[in-house]
């Protein structure tokens, strides 16, 4: 199969969906002339024009709010947040408007907006350009939240998100943009709400997603040397959680480690650990372990940044503690 980068995969998804459906359009800061923070959409305006690929003012409430309004009026906007850190500026639009409008109005409308949010710590971007904030939205009914780890899912999930009639938050780790992987040439979708067992194993389940999935796979490789067989699950969607895949694996391995780059406190791992503790405690042969970033803003210095971010050794260590 051909190999393309994460960036190319999302570009293909955008171009295919825009060609197919006139209602799909893309807007965000520096999304048209620059092509997004990594220039991945640079050629889109040539194909679809600067109306359907729009550079916006630096007005996050208006970008997200207008995305919601356009969706209510029959369009299917893809809205770019530039950096997930700036979603804070538009929290009302995401939490009180986008997420609630359909339910609050008794199902009279749909809100087919996709909000793309580049996240993750990369290259000393420091405290306000490095966060992973996906867990906040696990707390808000009405949203779907997807978070791919590889080019194929980046394309498949973006296409699925654009076709979904619900609002979807699409988180993409900045350090994954340049990563290559096999992507089918024929059209395909990655189903929202379905996790994937990336590597089978028998002794411990490591649940991860986005960039940490790669560290989880490296950890699994190292654990082999110690005779521990790890099953690695790529969650891919965090709302709604694919409990079926998670539970099946935990019932088999009887041990669970959850790993993500986001802050450990109140992270997605906390929710997953709680679900498993509530519903599968009798299957577990050891405590659940969470691996995530330390509870501190992300520091600038290359000497400090890696210290607070979860590393392969942290996952290996967590597994060894409980197995």
């Amino acid at each position: 199969m051909r190999e393309i980068t994460f960036s190319q995969a999302t570009m293909e998804a955008m171009a295919e969906e825009m060609a197919r459906d006139e209602r799909v359009f893309l807007m965000g800061e520096d999304i048209a002339r620059q092509g997004g923070i990594f220039g991945q959409f640079k050629s889109l305006p040539q194909q679809f024009g600067f109306d359907r690929v729009r550079d916006t003012p630096i007005s996050e409430t208006a970008i997200v709010g207008a995305g919601v309004g356009a969706a209510l009026a029959g369009m299917r906007p893809v809205v770019d947040m530039h950096f997930v850190d700036f979603i804070t500026v538009a929290m009302d639009e995401v939490v009180n408007q986008m997420a609630k409008i359909r339910y609050m109005f008794g199902g009279q409308c749909t809100v087919p907006v996709v909000l793309r949010a580049p996240d993750g710590a990369a290259r000393s971007a420091a405290a306000q350009h490095s966060q992973s904030l996906e867990s906040w939205f696990v707390h808000v009914p009405g949203l779907k939240v997807v978070i791919p780890s590889n080019p194929a899912d980046a394309k498949g999930l973006l296409k699925a998100a654009i076709r979904d009639d619900n609002p979807v938050l699409y988180f993409e780790n900045k350090d994954l943009f340049g990563k290559k992987g096999p992507v089918p040439e024929d059209e395909f979708f990655t189903p929202i709400g379905k996790a994937k067992v990336v590597q089978e194993g028998t002794d411990v389940t490591i649940v991860s997603y986005s960039i940490m999935l790669h560290k989880a796979l490296d950890a699994a490789e190292q654990l082999k040397a110690d005779g521990i067989s790890a099953e690695v699950i790529d969650l891919r969607t965090i709302v709604p959680i694919d409990k079926e895949t998670l539970f099946e694996s935990v019932k088999k391995t009887k041990h669970l480690v959850i790993a993500h780059e986001a802050t450990k406190n109140g992270g997605v791992g906390s929710e997953l650990a709680a679900i498993v503790a509530e519903e599968l405690i009798d299957y577990l042969d050891g405590p659940i372990r969470r691996v995530g970033a330390d509870f501190v803003p992300i520091p600038f210095s290359p000497a400090l940044e890696p210290l607070m971010l979860p590393q392969v050794e942290d996952i290996v260590g967590a597994v060894k503690e409980i197995c």
Partner: peptide, 22 residues
């Protein structure tokens, strides 16, 4: 829609106007 958030409607209206224009 009415809106329980004061000032929550501006950008929804802007988006609806954008939809019409597009």
């Amino acid at each position: 829609g009415a809106n329980g958030v004061v000032g929550g409607g501006y950008n929804l209206a802007v988006g609806a106007g954008l939809a019409a224009k597009l």
